[in-house]
Amino acid sequence: MEERSSMKMSPGGKEKNLFHVVDKVCPGDDHYARAKHAQIVEKNPEAAIVLFWKAINAGDRVDSALKDMAVVMKQLDRTEEAIEAIKSFRGLCPKQAQESLDNLLIDLYKKCGKVDEEIKLLKQKLRLIYQGEVFNGKLTKIARSRGKKFQVSIKQETARILGNLGWAYIQKANFLAAEVVYRKAQMIYPDANKACNLGLCLMKQARHEEARSVLEQVLQGKLPGAGDIKSRNRAEDLWRELGSWEPPPLSSNPPSLGLEDDDFADGLERLINEWAPNRSGRLPIFEEISRFRDQLDC
């Protein structure tokens, strides 16, 4: 978006500051407006953080000030400070701001490597979906990205969260749990990127033929998003790796799914039953897991 001038000629011929004319800068002279001016116009993030703190303490647009301050802290690699700030002050924010604060927290956890906290919060967000407490009871919401608005359905949001959860399990090298999550995400709202991640999980478990079958769907353009150059390039890279993949060493301990707490798996099954009613019985992956554990117990 083109940046407009923050100066305007007054009737007397003198220049008058109109900082709020600059995109995303609020009019006024309160702490929040001054913080946004420091952040966007002056490009002084340290000063912006100080003013965002003052806005929060003064009760001046607390939810916006808290989110904006956390974003600036993240840019300055002050991620853990941002996490603590959100935890400390989110109670002052209205209910409708909590979802966006959770999304910001997830990004912060990811950036600083707090994978367990990220997983916990992602599961919490999924529980809210099971309980019908997202989107204010509606089936879609308006989201924004890079200045553009678009609609997101509950199915899309659920698959997105599951995709993030699967990636978090990959970071913990829990490829079996990641596989379960990605398979469920694909049943709800399939796409090429999650298929690539599912293929990676299968490769890590030395299940090469299954991985080939999944990656073929991307390479043959059978999934939404398969035309995206990044997804296709990634599928091609994984396909090439399959030719020289070394199987991981066998472990005497069965892998932990990490999905059983607080009826998490049951909640996912309920969503699958609602959104994919034509599937037959339990997900095949759960039967495979049961057989795998039986073999280890022998």
Rank of each mutant, 00 (worst) to 15 (best):
D107P: 01
E241G: 15
Q131I: 10
K43I: 08
E236G: 03
K67C: 13
V71N: 15
A33Q: 02
E117L: 11
M1H: 13
D60H: 08
L250F: 14
K125E: 11
R4T: 07
T158L: 05
C26D: 13
E209D: 10
L101Y: 04
L283Y: 06
K222D: 00
A97D: 01
N233I: 12
Q171H: 07
E118S: 03
D294H: 10
S244I: 10
A82G: 14
F286N: 00
F286T: 00
A143H: 12
L238N: 07
R78S: 08
G147F: 00
G147W: 00
S252A: 09
D29Q: 12
C201Q: 09
R240V: 07
R146L: 00
R127L: 05
A226V: 07
A177T: 03
D191P: 02
M73R: 13
L92Y: 11
I40H: 10
S100V: 14
V21M: 11
S145L: 10
A178H: 01
A173R: 09
E260D: 11
A195I: 11
A97C: 04
I272E: 07
R212Y: 07
L296P: 02
G258E: 04
E246V: 13
L51G: 01
L268N: 06
I272R: 08
K110Q: 09
N164Q: 15
V25L: 05
M203H: 04
E15K: 01
A65Q: 03
K230G: 14
I229N: 11
N103D: 15
G163S: 03
L283S: 06
A206N: 09
D294I: 04
A178K: 00
P249C: 06
T158V: 10
S5R: 12
S280F: 13
E269D: 12
L202I: 03
A159V: 04
Q156A: 13
